[in-house]
Design a protein around this nucleic acid. Structure first.
Lengths: 222, 222
DNA sequence: ACTGTTTTGTCGTGTACACGACATTATTTA
DNA sequence: TAAATAATGTCGTGTACACGACAAAACAGT
């Protein structure tokens, strides 16, 4: 299982201009860091997409965040100085700037502008994770999927034949993991929605009339 | 229903020294702000305890955070400038400093130290909300309660008769809301734990041998 | 083109837990 | 100290959904 609070991410991007940073290229599937690692660095994503997730003992995943260019990650250990609890894995080839924690601190002190952007990024994420949490307790699987699609639309949606198309290929497993459901449930619900004529599939990408039309499907309870 | 990610909060407190801030006293039950309000201010809690929560349409609550003295709140609207989605309600009588958003921005620019503390607070919260999210998908009610007790212990735990005592009076409803369960389930599970001799009640406060002893009760599944 | 692997679709079956309904006991408030 | 309100304890009953099992389809590698 895998969660994703990621869809709507901060619109505040930091330009890839961290001075004296070490820049590294990664391949799809590579880990920037894994849970258990010491965690002495802060990262800025320049290019690509990175999935930040946790792993429960039973092997369930919780995708905390999808990082996009301009976003800082690996901050969680800033206060605690403990080891990482999160996995950071590349979804595609990525370029990442990396600086040590204390250097990052200095940077923030000397660049109030960057500090403010970091604060805005964090704030935004906190809000979205909060939304997700609410979503979890309040909604059933169907509503969760619908809301997920709406959120995905705001990040990956493109216009296509006078409709909206979520322009990212995602498997049912991935979708399931984003909303804390099991794969079969997602398959069934997606099948229902398709049968109802609410969504269409264009090679693993989901298309629908409009976000509003989708939202109208959310039952009263949620 | 009501969630709480609050238990372990940032250890970074900001001294109540925001210049030119308006200081207000509140009574228990008062709202500092409610969802739907414009949200042009940032707050710093000087004294008391504040519950930050969301409300789902069906009336379910999700407690996002318990604010303690030295913590900043009301930030979520910093980037979006939209209306608030959160309720901030006093759990007891509180003293709160309040400054307008842009003044807060200026403050951050001129005081990198405060900016850093804010970043650390946010980071800490993000981590905890993430934990909660994982907790939600991976654990059943019993494990959620046990883990909640462990977390509560780190914040409110005191030593008492060579045992740990969570020194806050919480109703079953409140506990239920913290873990996204219904009240009856909490009553039952707490009853089980008591019958098993794992916990005791000392006027609405929960006591147990040790956090480790509690954690041992978490079943293998995770 | 052939074969292994991943993804999708569709069944049951089992179960955790929400929800309503009460009775009982605390805790406020008048 | 009575009356009202809130908190607890304990029942069913219903249901959403996880999980296992498998078949079919799509995709990838050689």
């Amino acid at each position: 299982m895998e969660l994703d609070n990621t869809e709507l991410l901060s619109h505040k991007k930091i330009n890839s201009c961290i001075p004296d940073s070490k820049i590294t290229q990664y391949q799809k599937g590579d880990f920037i860091f894994q849970a258990g690692a010491p965690g002495k660095n802060i990262y800025l994503l320049n290019k690509g997409r990175i999935k930040l997730y946790r792993l429960a003992p039973a092997g369930k995943k919780v995708t905390q965040w999808f990082c996009f260019p301009g976003e800082v990650f690996g901050l969680a250990e800033l206060p605690s100085k403990k080891e990482r609890t999160i996995y950071a894995q590349c979804c595609e080839s990525c370029e990442v700037s990396e600086i040590p924690l204390n250097q990052f601190r200095d940077l923030l002190s000397s660049s109030p502008d960057i500090a403010l952007q970091v604060i805005e990024q964090l704030t935004m994420r906190l809000k979205i994770v909060g939304d997700t949490l609410l979503n979890f307790t309040a909604d059933d699987s169907r509503s969760r999927i619908i809301k997920l699609l709406v959120r995905l639309n705001t990040r990956f949606g493109v216009s296509h034949n006078n409709r909206r198309l979520i322009d990212v290929a995602l498997t049912h497993k991935e979708l399931a993991d984003m909303i804390g459901a099991c794969r079969q449930t997602v398959t069934t619900i997606l099948g229902d929605l398709k049968r109802e004529g609410k969504i269409e599939f264009i090679n693993h990408r989901i298309s629908f009339r409009s976000p509003a039309a989708l939202e109208a499907l959310i039952d009263q309870r949620g």
